[in-house]
Design a protein around this nucleic acid. Structure first.
Lengths: 188, 188
DNA sequence: ATAAAAACGAACAGACTTGTCTGTTTTTTG
DNA sequence: CAAAAAACAGACAAGTCTGTTCGTTTTTAT
């Protein structure tokens, strides 16, 4: 049972914190083994290279994003409420994480020559969000063509991305709030 | 005349290429001196540390962005045409640069603990664009309140940012084109 | 032409990097 | 309880990193 081992779990816990706070490159193997209280040989038994840690980190992050967001939307009805919860969720994460930006975009931007496997995890994460947005739009009372739904979903996703970037640069949640209001107006 | 020296110029030329292609941390001092054909002692005469190179790089990049964009808009009338040129300009840069994302956001995301001076250069660059967008909106025939102008400018800026991010993840200019069309619709 | 300034090549320091390997101890499993 | 598997601590390799310092050569300015 290598997949659920304690070593793996502790390493992923640690890098989830460190990669976000410091970035991937600024986080050394030695710091990882020290803070996760794991022997270097054990770490390399589970992750043959640092890139493998990165891939596992991304997979873990996208899985956790989905379950955490689902939990966040627990008591909200599908449709507009859940759709707008996207912005509230991002706001919460931004505040808690110190406004360092989207986990996934951060990796892609830090490593412009990222391997395709890792890049695909990031792409799929963004595609997942867009699909979700489209689904919730189609649940709304307003009748929309497929084309209109697609355009609206794109617009909302870009408001989400763009306000996330600006929130990070300004170290403020305001852009996310403002983008949410705009999205709300667009939906009605 | 240290500001216009050939050493400084060649170093900035080189890092403009290397920082964008590889990122800041992945670019070593030794590669910089080799490709800019400058002695290490000369480089450290002009830039006491690597962080100083980064600051100079950002200042240079924002200055060049402004002049290049002005040249790009050369024959376009102020108002909608120039405003939408923002998207065309971003598209051109994205294609030429291999879809590695916005120069400035890249730095901020790669270095989450960036010094305030550098972060301010980035913030001012984004503020400059937003101010420009507002100015061009106010030139349009449609009458808008200050509040409406502000909201519209924010929306356009986030479409610009968001589509830029997605364009980079997908390595495709399509999101920028699509965002431009949406912006166009919003303006009328 | 001569003096001052700038750029040069190259060695060097010291710390850090990822990854390997060895032998020991702990944990798990039959 | 014994055998197998996993995790351990830590030394080590080989290379990289930023930054300093040397004496020499080239360029610039008076």
């Amino acid at each position: 049972m290598k997949e659920n081992s304690k070593v793996r779990h502790r390493v992923l816990d640690t890098v989830t914190r460190l990669f976000y706070e410091q970035g991937f490159q600024a986080t050394g193997i030695n710091q990882i083994i020290e803070e996760s209280e794991v022997a270097k040989a054990s770490l390399y038994e589970h992750f043959p290279s640092k890139e493998d840690i990165l891939r596992a980190y991304l997979e873990d992050a996208t899985a956790r994003w989905r379950t955490d967001f689902a939990a966040f939307c627990n008591d909200r009805p599908p449709g507009e409420k859940t759709l707008l919860a996207l912005f509230d969720y991002r706001k919460q994460r931004a505040v808690e994480g110190g406004f360092k930006g989207c986990t996934f975009v951060r990796v892609a931007y830090e490593l412009p020559n990222l391997d395709e496997a890792s890049l695909d995890i990031i792409r799929k994460h963004k595609a997942y969000i867009k699909t979700m947005v489209k689904q919730h739009i189609s649940l709304l009372p307003v009748r929309r063509s497929a084309r209109e739904t697609e355009d609206l979903a794109e617009m909302i996703v870009w408001l989400y991305e763009g306000s996330g970037v600006q929130s990070s640069l300004e170290r403020s949640a305001h852009p996310i709030d403002a983008a949410k209001k705009i999205a709300q107006k667009l939906l009605s």
